[in-house]
Amino acid sequence: MKSASAKRGPRRTLMRALPVSPAVLLMLAFLAGPIGYCVYLAFTDLQLTGQAASSLIGFENFRKAFTDEDFLNAVWLTLVFTVLSSLVGQNTLGLGLALLMQRASKPLRTLTGGIVVTAWVLPEVVAGFLLYAFFQKQGTLNAILDFLHLPSQNWLFTLPILAVSFANVWRGTAFSMLVYSAALNEIPKEIVESAQVDGAGGWRRLWHITLPMIRRSIGTNLMLNTLQTLSVFGLIWVMTRGGPGNRSQTLPLYMYEEAFQNSMIGYATAVALLLLIVGSLFSLVYMRLLRTEV
């Protein structure tokens, strides 16, 4: 193949690149375009209505953001949401379920797997409604707590960020579970058995053998979970609209409010750019983890 392509030169190369062009054009126009526009808009004072022209205002938007309490609140809540629901919740629970599935009997494996995966496959907004009903004052959770004679409360009002974090765990754990199940199945049986023979207990085997052997999957899973969690909008929107007040307003919801309720497109884009930069950093780390495969 190589000699043939060398003989026919650039025309051949062009013909070979041709099939890639529809995809490239689409991505340039509708993905790279908006990202470039995002970088530009972030330095302007564009507003939604009644403004003839916007002007470049340098780093003003960013300066405003870092002195704005609502922005800092959104950053903090995004951090809480990501750590609670992605790093701790989905990741640990997903690993736990995958480990239990290795030992459990087949009917229970199928049952639990089916239920957890259904929660994952449901459209985001439907998941939002289901968990809204679950956490609502007259909802299922309080009914159960009442039945157990435990104190109930209006979860979406008292602990909104905790409620939406649980919602995200409910919705997203399946992904981690699938990734870890696949990874655990690839560990050779002999290694586990020889450790058993050597008398290593359950926790020690997990810590010294299982976890090191699936560390690449752990890295991949953490990255993808975090990226996915950073961009959750619909789930929180349906459950709390970011409220009460701004007590569950993560960065995407803050960005939306600034753009459309306060008409500050330029400022909201600056926030979007910050989110995009954080996302890009995570992407780069993820690519390092996969680097052997490209």
């Binding site: 961009s231 995407p252 960005m255 497109i265 979007a272 989110l275 995009l276 890009s280």
Partner: peptide, 17 residues
């Protein structure tokens, strides 16, 4: 691969504009 991971939510305001 890099584009796969970008949070699409973040670009929606500029896409709207």
């Amino acid at each position: 691969l890099f584009a796969t991971c970008l949070p699409i939510t973040a670009v929606m305001v500029p896409v709207y504009a």
